[in-house]
Amino acid sequence: MAMQERAVRTRKSLIHTAAAVFAEEGYAPSSLTTISKRAGVSNGALHFHFENKKALAQAVEDEAADTVRRLVRPADRAGTSALQALVDATHGLAECLLDDIVVRAGFDLGSERALGPEARLLSAWREWVEETLRRAEAEGQLAPGVSPDDAAAAIVAVTVGFEVLARDDPHWLAERRIAGFWQLLLPGIAAGYGPVRARPAAREGECSRAEEA
Rank of each mutant, 00 (worst) to 15 (best):
A210K: 11
E206W: 08
L98F: 00
A65V: 00
V60K: 06
H171I: 00
L133Q: 11
S81E: 00
I189Q: 04
P187L: 07
A59S: 09
E212G: 05
S208V: 09
A191C: 12
R104Q: 05
V72G: 05
A157S: 14
A105R: 04
L121K: 14
A143D: 11
H49R: 10
I101W: 00
A213T: 10
L46C: 11
A39Y: 04
R73Q: 15
Q4N: 11
S111L: 15
T80W: 01
R209W: 03
V160F: 04
P74H: 08
M3E: 14
E118N: 13
A166R: 08
L71M: 14
R11Y: 02
L56R: 04
Q141M: 11
H171T: 13
W172S: 02
M3Q: 10
M1S: 11
L133W: 05
R135I: 01
N43T: 15
L173D: 05
R134V: 05
S30W: 02
D168T: 00
V158M: 10
E175K: 15
D62T: 04
A55C: 06
A213M: 10
R135K: 14
E204I: 08
A166V: 01
A28H: 07
V102K: 00
I101A: 12
A191V: 05
G161H: 02
Q4H: 04
A28N: 04
P187S: 03
F181R: 12
R70W: 05
F107Q: 06
S30M: 08
P187Q: 04
A114T: 11
R9M: 12
A65H: 07
T132M: 10
R70K: 14
L142C: 13
V72K: 09
T67D: 12
L165F: 12
A119F: 12
V103L: 06
G188T: 09
R135E: 11
V129Y: 12
R6P: 00
G140Q: 11
L46V: 07
A28I: 06
A19W: 00
E25S: 12
V68M: 15
S42P: 06
G92H: 03
K54G: 08
C207T: 05
L186F: 07
S31K: 06
A64T: 02
A59T: 06
T34V: 04
D149R: 11
S147Y: 10
Q4E: 09
Y193W: 02
L173I: 06
E163Y: 08
A85H: 06
E51L: 03
I101M: 09
I15R: 01
P74Y: 01
S208I: 04
Q141F: 02
D76S: 12
V102E: 05
I15T: 02
A65I: 01
